[in-house]
């Protein structure tokens, strides 16, 4: 998978030619529409809401917001060329040229919901010598929290480079006061895996979010095996468990074979 984040800053990468290419590609249009619909599905919004689209680009996701439920939306993006394409396409929403890492320029309680499709992974990059991803993430989530009304919801689809980026983004969101977590679609297919960050501002019940069809990770759901259970395991199981643990920590571990965990014969 190619990563535009590693190529150039967003306002440089999405140049005039790249913006046109991006918007006219039917494959990208299809994927963007699919992800927007999925994000809306997770948010389970009432009709006629005021929505912010972060990284709206040429308005591919915004058009769906207007079609589904008659929402009124405001889009912000850092690439002038992308916004120019959006103007040409005559999208119904308002457009804003702004950098999400410098803060969301809206007063408290402006929006009912925020949606962002394939954008927030850009925050993990330091494009200039003064940009600090940690501070940009913190500023982004702080101002995002403020711009939402209490009980407002956020759905961000993003492409993390590795688990560390996921942790960084989730940590920044939690620090800003959001509740919520990660929904991963198509987890077993590495290429099609989609990450959705689902957050709520203020205390509301989880019933407000449509979690139908979402699998809760067994590792997180099940508590650690109790001490009692551990005593009952055989030596072989114990060795296998420890080897698995070391492998997860990235240690070099001998391969499993039929002799693993077996006793040596007395006549060796």
């Amino acid at each position: 998978m190619s990563r535009p984040e590693t190529t150039a800053p967003p306002e440089v990468f999405y140049s005039e030619t790249e913006s046109k290419k991006y918007t006219s590609s039917s494959r990208i249009q299809h994927i963007q529409a699919e992800m927007t619909l999925r994000a809306l599905d997770l948010l389970a919004l009432d009709p006629h809401q005021h929505i912010l689209d972060i990284g709206c680009g040429s308005g591919l996701s915004g058009e769906i917001l207007s079609q589904e439920g008659g929402h009124v939306w405001v889009g912000m993006d850092i690439s002038p060329s992308m916004l120019a394409v959006a103007l040409d396409r005559d999208v119904p929403g308002d457009l804003l040229l702004a950098d999400m890492g410098a803060g969301i320029p809206f007063r408290a309680g402006s929006f009912d919901a925020v949606i962002s499709i394939s954008a927030i992974q850009w925050l993990c990059n330091a494009d200039t010598n003064t940009a600090d991803p940690k501070r940009r993430l913190a500023r982004f989530f702080d101002t995002l929290y403020a711009a939402l009304r209490r009980g407002g919801k956020v759905a961000c689809q993003f492409y993390p480079r590795d688990d560390r980026q996921v942790e960084q983004i989730l940590g920044a969101a939690k620090t800003a006061g959001f509740a919520g977590g990660l929904v991963i679609d198509d987890e077993d297919k590495k290429k099609n895996r989609k990450y959705y960050l689902i957050l709520t501002a203020g205390n509301i019940t989880t019933n407000d979010i449509n979690l139908k069809g979402v699998k809760i990770d067994k590792q997180h759901a099940a508590r650690r095996t109790s001490k009692k259970n551990r005593k009952e395991e055989s030596t072989k199981e114990y060795i296998n468990r420890k080897k698995e643990l070391m492998r997860k920590r990235g240690k070099l571990v001998a391969l499993d074979s039929q002799f693993t965990g077996r006793k040596r014969r007395p006549k060796f």
């Binding site: 850092i78 916004l83 103007l87 308002d94 457009l95 804003l96 040229l97 702004a98 950098d99």
Partner: peptide, 8 residues
Amino acid sequence: DSIPNFLL
């Protein structure tokens, strides 16, 4: 062109 510039 009806787009405000909030880049600082």
